[in-house]
């Protein structure tokens, strides 16, 4: 049997210089790590969902049963909906920036206090 360095193969980089999109490359570095960690949390959350469903069904929670678990249609939909909602939640700041494109601009807190106090 050939021993493959699976980590090295999986993490191989494609040809070409990697582009950085943020003004400071450190931001990109942190975003990449954050998204990877977010992905791992999602994996754990899906596993937890499987465990809960096994428990509810009275199926013994074993590694084999977890791996063999096939969500039915409702469960599959609920799990995809969870991922979608979760991603919207963690990317909220990106959407705030997009939403601010539509708004008027910065609010001056003092002016706003005066404005809402005026009869």
């Amino acid at each position: 049997m050939t021993i493959l360095d699976i980590n090295a193969l999986a993490n191989a980089k494609a040809k070409g210089k990697r582009p950085y999109f943020f003004d400071d490359p450190a931001v990109e570095r942190v975003l990449s790590i954050t998204m990877a960690v977010a992905g791992e949390l999602a994996v754990t959350r899906e596993r937890l969902d499987t465990i809960e469903r096994l428990l509810e069904a009275g199926t013994p929670v074993t590694k084999a049963n977890i791996n063999a678990f096939k969500p039915d249609d409702d469960a599959a939909r609920a799990r995809q909906a969870w991922h979608a909602e979760y991603i919207s939640r963690i990317l909220r700041i990106v959407h705030q920036e997009l939403e601010s494109l539509q708004s008027e601009g910065d609010v001056n807190p003092e002016a706003l206090a005066d404005e809402i106090s005026a009869a």
């Binding site: 998204m35 992905g39 999602a42 994996v43 899906e46 991922h83 919207s88 990317l91 959407h95």
Partner: peptide
């Protein structure tokens, strides 16, 4: 495996989110 499937599920949702909720802006 269970977790590999879950990881792909996260990624497919991420791709969809970026494509339908961010790109159109």
């Amino acid at each position: 495996t269970h977790d590999e499937t879950a990881r792909m599920n996260f990624l497919i949702n991420l791709v969809s989110h970026v494509g339908k909720d961010i790109a159109p802006a």
